[in-house]
Structures are given as C-alpha cells and as structure tokens.
Amino acid sequence: MYELIAQYPFMAAILALVGLGMAFGSLLGFAAIRFRTEGDPIADQINAILPQTQCGQCGFPGCRPYAEAIADGEAINKCPPGGEATINDLATLLDVEPMPLDEEHGEEKPRAVAYIREDECIGCTKCIQACPVDAILGAAKLMHTVIASECTGCDLCVEPCPVDCIDMITEETTLQTWKWPLPARVPRELVIATDAEQAA
C-alpha cells in the first residue's frame, strides 16, 4: 500500500482528495435533507417584530407578506403603525442601518381603537368582514361592537361602513399609561458660552 502511494504520489493525492470530497459531499447532502428547515425562519422572525395590525399600509396584504418581502430585500421603513421602534428592531435583526419611516405609506400615529356608534349601526356586517383580527362582534341586522382589547387600530373597518358610524378613538394617556418623557435635547447655545454670545 505504502509502496503504491510512494510510486504514484500524484494519483494517490488525487484519489485521496476525490475520496474526501465524496465523503463530505454525501454528508452535507444527507444533512441538507435530514435537517431541512421548514418555511423561512428569517421571515418568521421579521413577522414577529411587525406590529400585526394587518392594516396593509405597507402595500402588502398583511404583515406576513410584508415580512416575506423584507426577507427578499424590501425596505424596512414601510410600517407606520410600528414606527421607529419597529424599524430599529428590524435594523438590529437584519444588521442594516435604521432609516426614517417612509412617509409615503403614512405617518406614525398614537394607538387608536375603533369605536362603533351603536345607535347608528344598521347591522350590515361589512365591518366584520373587513376586520382582519375578528375584533368586531355582531350579526346581520343586529348592532355590532368592537372588542376594544383586540382591536389593532388598523382603520380597515372605517371605509366599508355605509353609514359612517365608526370612529377611530386615540388612546388617551391615563395615570397608568403615563410615562416620563426622555429629556429634551439641549441647544448648543445653552452649553457653550461663546456660542451663546454669538447667538445674542
């Protein structure tokens, strides 16, 4: 054996490399089949960050399609309900630079909840069909109402209402939801004496 290798070192080396290549190739091939991941894990992670309002403001029919689009290279700044926080999270996850929200798709608004003026509701069920999260309760020719805790504030029920009886009510700050504000940025003039003199 040793003599044979010594005799044909070039051939031996090629054989050895081919053998190793085949062994590792088959190992990788087996692993690719055996440990195949179902679905798209990065899209799942992106979807978990998106606010799940299913509002479609990004131009995709729901959060999941947008998550898949981001995984395929779509811009991360098209989600107004998520706003800056979502963009930052996405930027961290995908290791890209955070960018400002694309105003074309809407602006970041405080959370709102749909409210049906119940006296005016005619029971047409159009809003129920529009609600992506089943947060509207009601039946044909019976008054509908919004389950406020489940409403994502996506606005989708407002447009189909034929009698315009749905309001989007902005969540008000209560003692429980009040928070300390971040300190305001201090202008340079207040800090540097020469700047202050120049400003004066």
């Binding site: 799940q52 994502t152 928070k179 300390w180 971040l182």
Partner: peptide
C-alpha cells in the same frame, strides 16, 4: 430621567409585542 423613560418604553414595547402576538394568532386563525 433617561432610565425612567426607557423603562416605560420597554414595558410598553413588551405590552405591544404581547398584543401583536395575540392579534397575529387571531389573524391567522
């Protein structure tokens, strides 16, 4: 003041996340 604001923001963030998980489940079902 930065820490207080951030703590509140993080709590809010967690709450929002919980809520979005719930709406995702509702949307999917």
């Amino acid at each position: 003041q930065y820490y207080r604001a951030s703590k509140a923001d993080i709590r809010r963030h967690h709450l929002d996340h919980e809520r979005s998980e719930r709406s995702r489940a509702r949307f999917e079902s």
